[in-house]
Amino acid sequence: MSNKIVMAPEDVRRTLTRITHEIIERNKNLKHLMLVGMHTRGVPLARRMAANIEDFEGTKVPVGALDISFYRDDLASLDTQPIVHLTDIPASVDDRAIVLVDDVLYTGRSIRAAMDALIDLGRPKSIQLAVLIDRGHRELPIRADYVGKNMPSSRHEEIQVKLKETDGIDEVAIISIPPKEIIK
């Protein structure tokens, strides 16, 4: 097993700054914007982007937290149910431009579940997707509107995102697991 750090704390900060600028550029009317972070690490990322928007434009944008457990397509094949976190959407999603925020985009299945969850709450004007890392291997026709870093990876690798709020440090690492160890 080897561990390679690809983003240091400074890189994470700069990347989030750039993504925030892109979001502001794309969404002229910030009043209709809401950031929704996906549990677990999407939530702090969304909060930081909202803080950035307030810094840059002076506008407070509502931030929500979304748990997708109820909408997963693999519940029937799991041995035990995932722990559900609280979904907290502070404003109505109707007619709002929503930016979903997650740490890693991989197969796209979580994003599909998140879109279903959001649409169950109402009819957003649009849903956009912001991710810190896009590692490829999509299984559904989904792409991100805002990407921090494209990181083509092998399935034998794991992308590990750490954030100050959840893990004590901002850092992204690639961990390669030799195929033998994947079995168990």
Binding site: H39, T40, T80, P82, I83, V104, Y106, Q160
Partner: peptide
């Protein structure tokens, strides 16, 4: 190691 969150065969990765 903690499996990647999006891997459909594995549980959600959480710190809890």
């Amino acid at each position: 190691t903690t499996p990647s969150k999006d891997d459909p065969t594995l549980l959600v990765k959480t710190e809890k």
